[in-house]
């Protein structure tokens, strides 16, 4: 039993959509984040993000530092250490996906906020429930074999 409220990990694609108003998923990310913030305020959940993802986004996006800091004020940073990278190299997944999966398993995180369709293959709770990157919104049902 964890003493902390359930943690929601905000993955890179979710953060990128949230921070980039030009992103196709910005609206969905903002809507989902608003609900997450409501639940954070009620102390029902904790919001966390990996430091490697935040650093990466800071280098690429970051139009306004103060705005970003305010937007991510409820988010706690989770440090990715050498042992996590080592475990990610041994994981049976693509390297950038693997580091997220390692952090999720080792820190007992069950929920992931992402728009990256590669996480659909894993038994984790994904939010928001919208078509993810690489998954066309109007995709047809696969033909029955």
């Amino acid at each position: 039993m964890s003493l902390d409220p359930p943690k929601v990990l905000l993955e890179r694609s979710f953060l990128a959509a949230l921070l980039d108003p030009d992103s196709a998923h910005h609206g969905a990310a903002a809507q989902c984040y608003a609900e997450l913030v409501d639940r954070f305020e009620e102390d029902e959940i904790m919001l966390v993000a990996l430091d490697v993802h935040l650093r990466e986004l800071r280098a690429t996006l970051d139009p306004d530092r103060r705005l970003r800091l305010s937007l991510l004020a409820p988010v706690n940073t989770m440090h990715v250490a050498g042992q996590h990278r080592l475990a990610a190299r041994q994981a049976d997944a693509e390297p950038d996906v693997a580091i997220t999966l390692v952090m999720m398993r080792w820190n007992h995180l069950a929920r992931l906020a992402t728009f990256d369709g590669r996480f659909d293959d894993y038994d984790i709770e994904i939010i928001p429930d919208v078509p993810t990157l690489g998954e066309p919104a109007d995709a047809e049902e696969p033909a029955a074999l």
Partner: peptide
């Protein structure tokens, strides 16, 4: 403190949206 952090995020979100 939680309300303040949430309030900052909402205000920033409103600016971005």
């Amino acid at each position: 403190v939680r309300r303040r952090r949430a309030g900052r995020a909402r205000a920033a979100l409103a600016v971005m949206v």
